[in-house]
Simulated scan of single mutants.
Amino acid sequence: MNDALCVGVCMIDWDSGVCLGCGRTADEIDGVPVAPVTRPAPAKVPLPANVAENVGEGLQ
């Protein structure tokens, strides 16, 4: 939560859901956690056959 936005006047406009003092929503003020961004793991690319013959596939 960014308390630097707070101006000490918490008045929620329940029609818009936004604080009239700082412009944040009630969830932002309360610090409701936001799901972290997840990134897929990079795809494993097999070694070319001629390389795998000489050095092996390695640890998987």
Rank of each mutant, 00 (worst) to 15 (best):
A43R: 15
G8K: 05
V32A: 10
V37G: 04
V45W: 13
V7S: 09
D15M: 08
P48M: 15
L5F: 08
V32I: 14
W14C: 07
K44T: 14
I12Q: 00
S16T: 13
V37R: 03
R24I: 05
A41S: 10
S16M: 10
S16C: 06
C22K: 01
G8I: 02
G21K: 00
L5K: 07
D15K: 10
A4T: 13
P40L: 02
I29V: 13
G31T: 06
R24A: 06
T38K: 11
D15F: 11
W14S: 08
D13W: 03
P33T: 06
P48E: 15
A41P: 01
L20E: 03
T38H: 08
D30N: 12
C19G: 05
I12L: 13
P46Q: 10
C22Q: 03
M11A: 12
W14R: 07
I12P: 01
G21R: 00
E28W: 00
R24K: 12
I12S: 00
S16Y: 07
P42I: 04
P36F: 09
D30Y: 08
D15V: 10
I29R: 01
G31H: 02
V18D: 00
C10S: 14
V18C: 04
V9L: 14
P42W: 03
P40E: 03
V34E: 02
A35S: 06
A4L: 11
A4G: 10
T38G: 05
N2F: 03
P33N: 09
L20T: 07
T25V: 08
G23R: 12
T25M: 07
A35P: 01
P48R: 15
D3F: 05
V34S: 01
R39I: 07
L47D: 11
R24Q: 08
T38E: 12
D15S: 13
P33G: 02
I12N: 01
C19I: 01
L47M: 15
T25D: 06
L5P: 02
G21S: 03
P48C: 12
V7N: 11
C6T: 10
